[in-house]
Design a protein around this nucleic acid. Structure first.
Lengths: 126, 126
DNA sequence: GTTTATGTATTACAGTTGTAATCGAAAGGG
DNA sequence: CCCTTTCGATTACAACTGTAATACATAAAC
């Protein structure tokens, strides 16, 4: 799968929220958040199809698009390459940076604690 | 500061490890890890200078390069935009993904626990 | 001093990306 | 049936990227 560009990702996110959807529904969904011209959105849809990240089925004259690439898969792959590229593969320094900049909320801490507890549960037989 | 491309980042990393260094030292440092031609590395150095990410001082005929953009600043900025773009700003789901894929090591867990402890220490007056 | 090597600066060139405009076909309105 | 609207398909075009090659200047070697 070719890389998904940042603009393409915004389009893909719409499909992750709801699918299948028509091109015009995507245009509408993006009209709020962005200033993209309808033609721009359709170009991005085409490129996503070309990259194999989404597919479509015909609905009369129009197309209904659906994601092929799933969000969780995308997130995992991007996370790994990002952490590798920027932090040499270590994840804690990223979290540390957020902590230092006061970007961590109560909720983040709670979730992290739960993750750790679960991890330790599963790996207690070390 | 314009965005740093992936290839440019590899060059920048060399300067983060040691600076100031000559173009040839950078070429040598990258000769191991990559297959880049000397000319390629020099182009990347030029582009980094043009982007304001690094600077140089003359040393006779050659230049000695140093980073202007600091690694911690770069990491912080990239992390925030990445987390925003891919995880809508929430950091825990990223860590959760790693946990699920067994990408977390004992050391990561230990570091995370320490971070959390420190965070709670500092925010105990809630 | 003229040639050669070695630095940097400039140029190259195809692929990707952002951002559309134009084209062609078909569906709907009279 | 013809005209206009509305889809998707094709084309546009500049900036950025990856990956160098060529040009130019000057220091080093004879």
């Amino acid at each position: 799968m070719k890389d998904i560009s940042q603009a393409e990702l915004e389009v893909l996110k719409v499909l992750w929220q709801q699918s299948p959807v028509s091109a015009n529904q995507v245009v509408d969904a993006l009209a709020d958040a962005s200033q993209w011209h309808e033609k721009t959105v359709k170009t991005l849809l085409n490129r996503l199809v070309a990259k194999g990240a989404i597919s479509y089925e015909k609905d009369g004259r129009a197309y209904l698009y659906s994601p092929v690439l799933q969000q969780a898969d995308y997130q995992m792959k991007e996370s790994q390459s990002f952490i590798q590229r920027v932090f040499s593969g270590r994840i804690a320094p990223l979290v540390a940076g957020f902590a230092q900049q006061d970007k961590l909320a109560e909720q983040d801490i709670a979730e992290l604690k739960q993750l750790i507890a679960r991890w330790e549960q599963e790996n207690k037989n070390d």
